[in-house]
Design a protein around this nucleic acid. Structure first.
Length: 375
RNA sequence: GCGGAUGUAGUUUAACGGUAGAAUGUGAGCCUGUGGCGCUUGAGACGAGGGUUCGACUCCCUCCUUCCGCU
């Protein structure tokens, strides 16, 4: 059993569940720090465990360029290579099509990338992508998908949906083949990714086509690209109404506290985003009173911690003024401290959300957080 | 003391007898399946005084500053 629901909220569609992987189980909903190249930026794997991350997501495609999936395999897989005790997700590289510096083109057969280091052309097919993630031995793999941009025309987005389904089928077939000889408890999970922008009809088509292929879980992709909160949530709600109840749902790339809680209330289970770490490096910090910009001059002499209500390592030891100064100086430790706090904040938020769901107080909790993060 | 050079944002520097431009720093904002990159925007300067000129940061004079060299 890949996924079990253990508790359902009465007022909303929020739920508590268990995701079972070859590395172990994790309670949902949870948030994954992004560890693209086998580490979160400025936060090592032991710190990730310390601050409460039970799962993280890395990028299979980028890791296959360097150090190479064969090397990671020799270490016994990504989890052992980076010495992370939690669950390792890997992304397919589909998202890198949005990165003009390495993306060249794509067709029905696969995607052309430019190796950012050597400059050589790389051709990634869905089959190749599955082999990479299999070799890296992540616990959960993602399908290669075609992510359109928010500003793309509906025709373009429709084409992306079509391609995403074609690739998803090939991913699934090849993934099954690769795992045929493994015992059940050694199997890697595979998630399909829906596309379709903010168009209900395209999203419906995308989700239904993927469901027919029967994945271990379903990701909603292509958000956080410029659409409004309402546009996004309208689709999330719709996708959840199509995806079978007993499948875990992963809203990709979403890290804003408001958006996460809203999506949880619709029944989403898994999240990831570079937001906490990227924001941290740029001085935007999450607190129980909302977001603060610690580089602002008014914190120059502030002796208090980032968040008085936070019990993280950073808030117990350092002042706003000190962290602000370090960030301004571009001292790596400043980035480390800020990133640590933001990641801790999100892990703690998820913990509180789960407790609130169990106590039947989730809606109230969500509204409270929403008020502090009103923009 | 004499001779030479020098003086433009906090800093490093452009240009021009007719609106003084940039870089960096600084203030404010942006970043959602990560390129630690970056992007937008605000404030900020002609050493002082006099002269020539319709008009001077620009040409001339005096003073001052700083640097170099020489008694």
């Amino acid at each position: 059993m890949v996924f079990q629901i253990t508790y359902k909220d009465k007022k909303t569609n929020a739920r508590i569940g268990t995701l079972n992987t070859k590395k172990g189980s994790v309670e949902t909903p949870f948030f994954m720090p992004v560890a693209t190249k086998s580490t979160a930026k400025f936060i090592n794997s032991k710190k990730l465990e310390e601050l409460g991350a039970k799962a993280i997501i890395s990028n299979g495609f980028l890791l296959s360029i360097r150090p190479g999936s064969k090397i990671i395999k020799k270490f016994g897989g990504l989890g052992k290579f980076m010495n992370f005790n939690g669950i390792n997700f890997t992304d397919s590289g589909g998202f890198q099509m949005y990165s003009p510096s390495i993306y060249i083109s794509s067709n029905e057969k696969g995607v052309f990338f430019r190796n950012p280091i050597s400059g050589e052309k790389i051709f990634i097919t869905p089959e190749k992508d599955m082999e990479i993630q299999f070799e890296i031995q992540s616990d959960v793999a993602m399908c290669l998908d075609r992510m359109p941009l928010y500003e793309d025309s509906k025709t373009e987005i429709e084409k992306a949906v079509k391609l995403t389904t074609i690739w998803a089928r090939r991913c699934k077939e090849h993934h099954d083949k690769l795992q045929k000889n493994l015992t059940t408890n050694k199997k890697q999970l595979l998630f399909g990714i829906t596309q379709g922008g903010i168009y209900k009809d395209l999203r419906e088509k995308s989700a239904k086509e993927l469901i027919e292929l029967d994945f271990d879980g379903y990701s909603i992709g292509g958000f956080g690209m410029g659409e409004s909160f309402e546009e996004e949530m309208k689709i999330v709600k719709q996708q959840k109404s199509i995806i079978p109840e007993n499948k875990p749902v992963y809203l990709m790339g979403i890290g804003n506290p408001n958006e996460i809680l809203e999506a949880i209330s619709f029944g989403c289970d898994i999240f990831d985003s570079r937001m906490p770490t990227q924001n941290a490096r740029h001085g935007h910090l999450f607190t129980s009173k909302g977001k603060i910009k610690i580089l602002n001059k008014k914190y120059q002499l502030d002796k208090t911690p980032i968040d008085k209500n936070c019990s993280c390592f950073v808030c117990r030891n350092y002042s706003k003024a000190y962290i602000s100064f370090l960030l301004k100086q571009e001292e790596p430790v400043g980035k480390e401290l800020a990133s640590y706090h933001n990641l801790y904040y999100l892990q703690d938020l998820m913990k509180q959300a789960k407790e609130a769901i169990k106590k039947g107080k989730f809606e109230k909790f969500k509204e409270k957080v929403k008020r502090t993060y009103k923009e």
